[in-house]
């Protein structure tokens, strides 16, 4: 019984992280009918941005509350910019071309990022600079080396949230870690905020209109290009947040993590019904739970096979995903 509870907790914790990434796939698919295969890699870039800013902050600052806020802000803001640039310069010129063209471009960007980041590009220093504080003091930084591209070897993500057991049931049978609670809270509040944004705001209404038909949406005076840009920025920022939560949990960071996590989140989005916001969340939670139970009760080597088996099963029973409707391709 307590074992079951433990798996439930772990499954939900990883499921919420998948959910944040899956929401990005679903939102972009919603407005552009494009499966943005580079999404997971944008997440990976966000993790490295977070890694770099944690490094720049140093051991002390990276564990403080403001340090964690800075790390998340840099990663999410940086990814928003990256998402904006990818849409603006890679996808927008192809908007009126057949959909396959954009899809292949997305795969190309995915590989460019995940393999580009495996290159080793760095400059030997020393580099010193300081930022003047408001009350006379200053923040001084000193680096021996400036790393532009991190290289292929895995890196250990710093413990920006020192792991603490917050809640123990029975004789250490069920453990709830502080980072699990924090990541659950962050993920759930981001999802609630997103749900509010999509269904209760003027921007969300415009997004849903663009999602149905961007030409007709423009007839309402909606600046469709701006809505699409903002959607990319939002989904990329969410991915960066999710990536950091994943890195905190998993501690190992590699340039290929985006392909792996991205694929899982994509599977989650398809299980839920791609393009459907609550569907992405439910699909991700289910996937997180399924994986956790497989690892817990069978063997971890079975995890990915069962995850994809689950996908196939869902699609056999409900081809549009759990929440999706099967619609004929619009021409």
């Amino acid at each position: 019984m307590s074992q079951l509870l433990q798996h439930l907790i772990n499954g939900l914790a990883s499921g919420t992280i998948y959910a944040l990434v899956a929401l990005g796939y679903t939102m972009v698919y919603g407005v552009l009918k494009l499966i943005n295969f580079a999404h997971g890699d944008v997440m990976m870039v966000g993790v490295y941005m977070g890694y770099a800013s944690a490094f720049a902050l140093g051991r002390e600052a990276q564990r403080s509350l403001w340090g964690v806020v800075v790390i998340f802000a840099v990663a999410m803001g940086g990814c928003a910019l990256l998402g904006f640039l990818i849409e603006r310069f890679a996808y927008r010129p192809l908007r009126e071309k057949p959909r396959l063209t954009a899809l292949i471009t997305a795969i190309g960007i995915s590989f460019a990022l995940s393999y580009g980041f495996q290159l080793d590009v760095s400059f030997d220093g020393p580099f010193d600079f300081s930022i003047a504080g408001r009350r006379g003091g200053s923040f001084d930084f000193h680096f021996d080396r400036l790393v532009l591209l991190p290289g292929a070897s895995p890196r250990a993500f710093p413990e920006i949230i020192a792991p603490t057991e917050w809640f123990i049931l029975g004789d250490r049978d069920v453990v709830l870690w502080n980072w699990q609670v924090i990541s659950l809270l962050i993920a759930v509040s981001l999802m609630v905020a997103l749900q509010f944004l999509v269904y209760r705001t003027r921007f969300g209404k415009a997004m849903r209109a663009v999602s149905w038909d961007h030409r007709t949406a423009a007839l309402m005076g909606i600046p469709t290009d701006r809505i699409i840009s903002l959607t990319f920025m939002l989904s990329s920022a969410l991915a960066a947040g999710a990536g950091l939560l994943y890195a905190i949990k998993d501690t190992s960071v590699t340039p290929l993590m985006g392909l792996y996590v991205g694929l899982k989140a994509f599977v989650a989005a398809v299980i839920g019904g791609i393009g459907n916001v609550p569907g992405a969340v439910v699909g991700a939670l289910l996937l997180g739970l399924v994986e956790e139970f497989v690892v817990g009760y069978a063997a971890s080597t079975w995890r990915d096979a069962v995850a994809f088996g689950f996908l196939i099963l869902v699609l056999l029973v409900k081809p549009g995903g759990l929440f999706g409707r099967v619609a004929a391709e619009k021409v």
């Binding site: 209404k205 415009a206 849903r208 209109a209 999602s211 149905w212 038909d213 007709t216 949406a217 909606i222």
Partner: peptide, 12 residues
């Protein structure tokens, strides 16, 4: 927009 309510269509 069939995926939006009547009022939401009007609001757009």
């Amino acid at each position: 927009f069939p995926n939006l309510t009547v009022v939401e269509n009007l609001e757009l």
